[in-house]
């Protein structure tokens, strides 16, 4: 099956892409897809490592947990922590 993957914020700069189309085995989950992307990114060098543990994922514009099973044509967005701006004491 084929899914669209969208990158935002710092992730878009790091992977140097806004959008990707990926061919995945049937039954692949959100968690599985993140693992794949993380692995292929780590082969391309450092710089991306820290981001993966803080991501959220949206499938078809809704936050989706790791066990969500993907379907043909899904739009999967990788979302770095959002930053309308963190409130800081300093």
């Amino acid at each position: 099956m084929r899914v669209a993957v969208l990158y935002f914020g710092i992730l878009k700069d790091l992977v140097a892409a806004e959008r990707d189309a990926l061919e995945l085995p049937e039954g692949e989950t959100v968690g599985g897809l993140v693992s794949r992307l993380r692995e292929s990114a780590s082969k391309q060098g450092e710089g991306l490592a820290g981001i993966w543990s803080s991501l959220a994922v949206a499938v078809n514009r809704e936050y989706a947990p790791a066990e969500t099973v993907l379907r043909e044509g899904d739009e999967v967005a990788l979302l770095p922590p959002v930053s309308g701006g963190r409130e800081r004491a300093d």
Partner: peptide, 29 residues
């Protein structure tokens, strides 16, 4: 809400650090 900001300074630019997602949103990862 999925909105991000990049800060442009006199001496460079960075994506602002986001606040960690609430655990029910990021738990999966």
């Amino acid at each position: 809400v999925p909105i991000w900001k990049k800060e442009f300074f006199v001496d460079g630019a960075v994506w602002a650090d986001g606040e960690a997602f609430p655990s029910d949103l990021s738990a999966g990862v």
